[in-house]
Nucleic acid binder design. Structure first.
Lengths: 340, 340
DNA sequence: AATGTCTTTCAAAGCGCTTTGGGAAGAGTG
DNA sequence: CACTCTTCCCAAAGCGCTTTGAAAGACATT
């Protein structure tokens, strides 16, 4: 069923039917109702490709998704997506996801934009410098970064959390508890969120005249397994750390297992603070020793990004262009005074 | 840059340029190269919405994604998606995801199909009976279910794993080890995968003259937290179970924590078998007591579904229409003889 | 020179929608 | 009564692409 068939059946022109359906004022209430009813009955749904072609709008937001044979699903991604979806469903938006191998991301983005399938795009996994930012600037289609490049000045719309601040605060807490030997379980090095987390920790340490030992820093994918292995390595270090900063609860899961396996007691022999993205599957408060965390909901970020992008497309420009969210420090049992 | 501009600049008709770009034989090699080069230089990318409108094809597969304010991200979903993406990226396909509240899924599916945005759709979370199957049958667009409805005869394309067989085998193993009191930590009841897993367990138990006590069965979202709470409840039961069947490693994570907390030793005081979807974040072999599992990679299923759908769209009909994958039983340390 | 066959190109129609620019009634005004 | 306004509707153009049907030119065959 398309517009023509529907209007033929109603004995009206396509113009009138289209207007009735889209709420334009130039049709009488009587015909509008007649049209609406017929659309309902016949199950008419407009063809979005045609709509998009005609209007340039399609109520869709695009994103490119990293894909590689060795790259598993990322729970952070689906958590974020669920937030985005929550907002999208309210406004009848949908997503277009273009998968791309990591080395072809910029090209995939180009194709996605030129495809005429999306009204706006969202970018994650920010690196520095990020070639996608330059691309977007020349592209006239609305966009929004989750994260931001390094430096203090940013001339593009973004939503980021204060990663540096979070890890600075977490480190400060551990320093106050008397810890001196720190380890860092971080995300992949090239991402700015990981850089900033490291900077935050280093800054606090520097203020106490301390440094991060390079052997006690791990940069990698944030999975349970990696957390376990890295922690085992840290614990074998001659100067075993008494405090661990951890970029995700998934990493922490593995780290805690290694700690237990070594016969150490979390919160007494060794303290740990993890960053908590509030993954629905894995809650830090329900670890056997509840985890002290810096918390910032990824899902909320997704929802907010959806909200801003959609508002922007609807012509509401009253939402901020740049936002920096603070993470909450939540103290639980995994942190305690440094052992004597 | 669009086709018209490109052809004007080349002094050719749109027809010729389009044909040159799409590899039709009716253009001379010389002009084809000229066109290709110009397209490269100008960065011309075809507008997919227009292509889709003109051809009815757009190299895209659609799916509806459940979304609700209280529904967090599902790591199973992203694991599956990464498999799908792996295949999609090879063939330059993309996805269109329509978010929908659980009660509006059929409608969202209708809109998605009518949208003219997708060439095929993929359906997950099969229930019984599943209204989407009837819808799809009347819709002429290719589709593929991940999972299948109940019963033995199915007249639609699907890929499923033998959930019943997996849990039957797992239960058999536990029975052989002398276990008599079983608990089941299952997925949400209305999904057929959960039904079949339960049936599998019950069948094996029935053969030994045993039954599942209703109080020792939990149907719910498969998260760590739920696993923990349910297991605590099971352990408080006057007739404490000695064997637990678990529908996911995420559930198992919580269950194991409850077991440890109760001071019981996994694999000795209590045995546990989990179904392993091979989530990249959480590996059963790296639990402190490695988990015995029934394994079937969700990512592989995603990739296979992508492969079949794309082959179908490309006119290759040599792939099977219906597939049932066996899960592997992998015995590790979480299963042992029933305590005396 | 006339005819037929390829090869290479093009103009125009059409995919399903929105939107512009009118036009035909009916309502209000002097 | 003629006149302007509204109100309600329509025909047609256009979004960027593919595809049909035809034409023009090159070449070989009678």
């Amino acid at each position: 069923m398309n517009l023509k068939q529907l209007s033929d059946r109603l004995g009206l022109s396509q113009t009138t039917v289209s207007r009735a359906l889209n709420g334009y004022p130039e049709v009488s209430e009587a015909t509008r109702e007649r049209v609406l009813k017929a659309a309902q009955q016949t199950g008419y749904k407009p063809n979005k490709a045609a709509q998009r072609l005609a209007t340039g709008k399609a109520k869709s937001i695009g994103l490119v998704m990293q894909s590689a044979p060795d790259l598993g699903g990322d729970p952070h991604f689906s958590e974020f997506l669920s937030g985005l979806a929550e907002e999208a469903v309210k406004h009848d938006f949908h997503f277009v996801m273009a998968p791309a191998s990591p080395d072809d991301e910029v090209n995939a983005l180009k194709r996605l934009i030129a495809s005429g399938y999306v009204d706006a795009v969202f970018l994650a996994h920010v690196v520095d410098p990020d070639p996608r930012v330059d691309l977007m600037r020349s592209c006239s289609i609305p966009y929004l970064l989750h994260g931001r490049t390094m430096g203090d000045v940013h001339d593009y719309p973004y939503l980021d959390i204060d990663n540096e601040g979070a890890f600075y605060t977490a480190t400060k807490l551990l320093l106050q508890l008397g810890h001196k030997r720190f380890a860092l379980l971080n995300g992949i090095e090239r991402f700015t969120f990981a850089m900033r987390r490291k900077t935050g920790a280093e800054k606090a340490l520097a203020e106490a005249g301390l440094k991060l030992a390079p052997e006690l820093v791990q940069h990698s994918v944030m999975s349970d397994q990696v957390g376990f292995r890295a922690m085992e390595r840290f614990l074998a270090h001659p100067e075993r750390p008494t405090a661990v900063l951890c970029a995700s609860t998934a990493l922490a899961l593995g780290a805690v297992r290694a700690i237990n396996k070594a016969g150490l007691k979390l919160g007494r022999d060794i303290s740990l603070i993890a960053h908590d993205d509030v993954l629905s599957m894995l809650r830090p408060e329900s670890f056997s020793v509840p985890l002290t965390t810096t918390r910032s909901s990824l899902r909320a970020a997704g929802a907010r990004i959806g909200q801003r992008l959609i508002a922007r497309l609807d012509g509401n420009a009253d939402l901020p262009e740049q936002e920096l969210w603070e993470a909450e420090l939540i103290v639980r049992a995994s942190t305690g005074p440094a052992p004597a």
